[in-house]
Amino acid sequence: MKPAAFDYHAPESVDEALELLADEAVESRVLAGGQSLVPMMNFRLAVPEALVDLRRIEELRYLRIGADGALEVGARTTQAELLRDPAVTTGWPLLHDGVTHIGHPQVRSRGTVCGSLAHHDPHGELPALALALGATITVAGPAGRRQIAAEDFFVSFYEVALEPGELVVEARFPAPPAGSGWSFREIARRHGDFALVGVACLVTPAQTRLVVFGAAERPLLLADPSEVAAAVRPLDDLHASAEYRRQVAVLLAGEALAEARERADG
């Protein structure tokens, strides 16, 4: 239960971090909150040769509303900081509610928003929330910065559209249009556990974004609960059978859509 030895770097700027990550001779991992990576290192499921810790990079420590009204979350912002921000509670209630389901307070005080996105556990809440809210993930790399839509970011289990040497620097959550409704539901064995299966739903005057997570290798964006049964590819493991997950996904999708519509104005 002790991690293997590694080199530790705590750079003070994104550029310095990118220089460290650019060294292809060393297998480096980015350390943000460490609430997924450190347990994996303690189990030696992850054995990186070096860690690049973001903790000194002040330029990544922000939670703000941008000129276009979108919520901009820097890579050092923790889940606890997000939950404490009243602007998030009122403007992005789906995001706020979903994040309260992540682990426990002791985990959210370290765990970061961007770290959960980059880690991409398909049973995790934040990838599903990013997809439901139409978020954009900004990554920095040797060739500069690029923006990736949540639809294109999550590839498969623990795999995202990051190229070697790239770093997630920001997640942007557009403001849901006035009159939107939302719902977040998940079933877990115990509060704070990863969901067996869950649903994040946003209903805007223009569209319905229904995201089922924990039911495939990545969160699935659907338009209607009738699509769920055919779309899911659930795991069959000791926590729950695939059939159970499929049934629960269908049920939660229907409930979530009804609740989101109820909350929407008009």
Partner: peptide, 9 residues
């Protein structure tokens, strides 16, 4: 802030 000291180096 409360944190798990086994998940912090």
């Amino acid at each position: 802030e409360p944190v798990r000291s086994c998940l912090v180096f």
